[in-house]
């Protein structure tokens, strides 16, 4: 199997790797690049724990080949913090206690960020829909919805 050279933007940095063709983006991030925020929950695209942004859209990194990100942009949860400052969504998750075991959290935050990147005034239904591909077994989602609402409000410039 011939390895594939992949050059892509990862959390704002130009990155080049050489990978086996069948290596998924999830495994590339976790096993070779030390970014273990994205998690393997099912490896079938059914739980969202592996969610990252590919060209600005939330995707299941377990179903993206590393080879497919050549020339594209990937953002992981590790890329949200800027100079020690958390993204408003991350702060809201902490304040609203939307984190329990934390294993679904990186994927959940990235999915929610996909929504807030498009609108800062999401309806309750839109919030639910945005994270409908992310399974949380701990929280029952109530505080996750509250965190997304609160982050949106803050980012809108509200109270």
């Amino acid at each position: 199997m011939k390895e594939i050279v992949v050059t892509f933007r990862l959390n704002g940095k130009e990155t080049t790797v050489s990978v086996p063709p069948a290596l998924t983006l999830l495994k590339l991030l976790r096993e070779r690049l030390g970014l273990t925020g994205a998690k393997p929950g099912c490896e079938r695209g059914e739980c969202g724990a592996c969610t990252v942004h590919l060209d600005g859209a939330p995707v299941n990194s377990c179903l993206v080949l590393a080879a497919q990100v050549d020339g594209r942009e990937v953002v992981t949860v590790e890329g949200l913090e800027r100079g020690g400052e958390l993204h408003p969504l991350q702060e809201a998750f902490i304040e609203e206690s939307a984190i329990q075991c934390g294993y679904c959290t990186p994927g959940m935050v990235m999915a929610a960020k996909g929504l807030l990147d498009r609108t800062l005034d999401p309806s309750p239904e839109e919030i639910r829909r945005a994270v409908s591909g992310n399974i949380c077994r701990c929280t029952g989602y109530t505080k996750i919805f509250a965190a997304v609402r609160s982050a949106a409000e803050k980012m809108r410039g509200g109270a």
Partner: peptide, 23 residues
């Protein structure tokens, strides 16, 4: 009181290393 969880920041930044995150 609503005291923030002491492990929340680490979890929300993806820094927590679970036993299955070790390579």
């Amino acid at each position: 009181k609503k005291v923030p969880r002491i492990d929340a920041r680490e979890k929300v930044t993806g820094k927590t290393r679970y036993s299955t995150d070790l390579y």
